[in-house]
Design a protein around this nucleic acid. Structure first.
Lengths: 245, 245
DNA sequence: GGACGTATGGCACTCAGTGCAGCACTCTGA
DNA sequence: TCAGAGTGCTGCACTGAGTGCCATACGTCC
């Protein structure tokens, strides 16, 4: 909502959301990353962090339920933004496009702080515990997308299956693009990379177009295939006929 | 490889793989699950487990690097089986079908011990820590599939993107089917459910044929569809026409 | 019997995470 | 100005996971 100063790293607001800002949370994130980068995650204890930040040990766990959480200080808010976004529609949007847009919210969060994101990427890549934690975060994003799609696909045959698969595909495409951008130290156009990746998913699963469809011409396509031919072959033929790919 | 007694729960062999069997590992798994089920995972300490199993505390961590590992005693072997399977091909197989077959290996492991799998499912569903751990296990499966596909798609444009997305889709479809089977207490045909789910992924991503096709009867199928109709709708129609499902 | 490798047990230690109590500050109302 | 309440921070003690080290027991080979 608010748009104050864009500091170096963290800027999520959790306690006291109405008034000003809790500098302590930011101080803890800053101290933690300083130590993580110069001596490694596992070689840094929570005591080291709070000593450097000049606060009490108990306060650390007031802001971050675990040591891992300090590495992902903004995901909680981003996840809330995503669920808000998905809930805000009127239910007539094209579902796959909608979840792709939701995924772009995550990219935007990463892109807001490129240097911080790249540092975190390098950290999570080499620390197994952080990788596992990141997985649980990604899983929550994926579940949010899947739940939205399940609701939209309600009544459809294999609706939950399609919802789960498409959500996973969207997340995988997003992460593929995101990681390639992070590997390049935040150079290049992150949005374009993600758009391209999500385009691949939409080409595979995209269903109805955003709005134009109502006024489609009633052209008729005839596909001829040998009975018993593998399904993929038939689909390929149809894709060609319909002009995809 | 070997097929001795199929005990109630665990039967993976890690230390001393050449000779007989380590009963201690099985005893620990059995004691752990007994306590997890009757008093909960978090309410059970490692000391409780080793006391019930009648072994030293240090031995627990010799067999299981963490408390979570005792809940997934057979995934390490299953993962090795999967990588072996993927590496055993001659590189001419249809890639998507190949990773689907690899995913079926995981299902087989679950289906070997339905009651154990259902118990574990209920446990992981309610314990956040175990869910996070399971995610990291699933992630390793997904990476194995993705790495295989990346190799097979080498040189293809967007090869790594397609590999990641397809791997994620296969895993999601597999898990969707697996979980629906687990929710039904292991009743029903797990293989058929998973086949159906994987069929959906193959219909979306499948590319080249396995081998048959050469000697198919020349019956002719005609599919008529409005141009602009969503792909999934067309596929659904074809599935019905071809007599699947 | 002695040397060796291996499986196990015991002990002490680090560190993450929690519950509790106390302290400091602020705001409010009389 | 002071009493009271609410809140944020700190220190302290405790549980429990996970590790390193060493001692012990068992079997094998020489």
């Amino acid at each position: 909502m608010s748009s104050e100063n864009a500091e170096s790293a963290a800027k999520a607001r959790k306690p006291d959301p109405a008034k000003g800002k809790p500098p302590m949370r930011d101080a803890l994130v800053a101290a933690a990353f300083r130590l993580f980068l110069e001596r490694g995650y596992e070689q840094t204890t929570v005591d080291d962090i709070v000593t450097l930040a000049g606060v009490g040990r108990r306060s650390f766990f007031r802001y971050f339920p675990s040591k891992e959480d300090v590495v992902f200080p903004d995901h909680e808010r981003c996840l809330a933004d995503m669920t808000d976004f998905l809930a805000s529609g009127d239910g007539t949007e094209e579902p796959v496009g909608r979840v792709c847009d939701a995924a772009r919210l995550v990219l935007r969060m990463y892109a807001e702080n490129p240097t911080f994101s790249v540092q975190r990427y390098r950290l999570t890549k080499k620390v197994p515990g952080l990788r596992a934690y990141e997985l649980s975060v990604v899983w929550r994003y994926e579940r949010a997308l899947a739940e939205y799609l399940r609701a939209r696909f309600a009544g459809r045959r294999d609706g939950t299956l399609q919802a789960d698969v498409i959500a996973a595909a969207v997340v995988a495409a997003h992460n593929n693009a995101l990681r390639s951008w992070l590997r390049s130290d935040g150079q290049g156009d992150a949005s374009a990379t993600v758009d391209h990746a999500l385009g691949y998913v939409q080409s595979a699963f995209g269903t109805a177009p955003p709005a134009p469809l109502v006024e489609q011409p009633e052209d008729v396509v005839v596909v001829v295939s040998r009975r018993g031919a593998p399904l993929w072959r038939v689909v390929q033929e149809i894709e060609t006929t319909l002009g995809r790919d």
